[in-house]
Amino acid sequence: MTTTVPAPRTTGERGAPLADVGRDEASLRRFLHGLPGVDQVGLERRSATLATRSIKADSKMRAIDMAVSMIDLTTLEGADTPGKVRSLCAQAMRPDPEYPDVPAVAAVCVYPDLAGVAVERLAGSSVGVAAVATAFPSGRSSLAVKLADTALAVDAGASEIDMVIDRGAFLTGNYGLVYDEIVAVKQACGPAHLKVILETGELAGYDDVRRASWLALLAGADVIKTSTGKISPAATLPVVQLMLLAVRDWHRLTGEHRGVKAAGGIRSAKDAIKHLVAVNEVAGPDWLTPALFRFGASSLLNDLLRQRRTQLEGHYVGASYIGSA
């Protein structure tokens, strides 16, 4: 498959060949609307084909462990308490106490006011702290509030920031506003990684997903993320596949690796493995690392642990045998 944008002339500084695109609203619009349309039937058929791949025995164990290491273990409820976040952190560091060889998850994802609690608990471990920010989940607030929200999380020590784009502005074609917001938040992040949530369930079709992905990459997103998890449909395989295509093309153009995070709606080990197959086939094996691909999930971890035990113990394991935070 060919790339969806013209070949690079130079490489070097961050996003070099595309540096001009974000210059003003008009060139941004020209670029985004110049992206080729998505072949919906072809995309969905490829997703369906990738989903039929059967992964067995040893490969399945490796896939399960890999999926565990890619999880952003998430709690984003109004009822979250410091206690709940602490127990989530315990589970993140040692997902299955009966099997200490299960890898730790990639990060814990919480609201910014609880990021400090997670940072304290996870200090010295390999588990990162991701905080959602910028008036999550709707993104409906002023830039000043969004930046303050980001600063709250960064000051608390969060190593990753999950921001939402202004879907209203995107849908009205106000790409410049969305771009500028991402750039501003990226600046406010400092050394923290920026994940940009596109909330694909609120965008109008696959073409919009492709445009939003490129917009976020152009503005400096380290990772593009499907959804907040508050809207259904969230992460679907075709949407994740489109986003993987975008980061793959970005890499071909600029030499930089940007990541993808599939969040929301992935609850079973089977779904997770389907996504890993897509990552390998669409983006390439480079992306099979927690640095470049993540699952945003709360209940997925338990199903992965259950399937892992099923593989090891030779019989099906009940959900009640796995404790959850």
């Binding site: 019989h315 099906y316 394991v317 009940g318 009640s320 045998y321």
Partner: peptide
Amino acid sequence: PWLAAHAE
């Protein structure tokens, strides 16, 4: 046998 072994 699968029913007998299933922990749930």
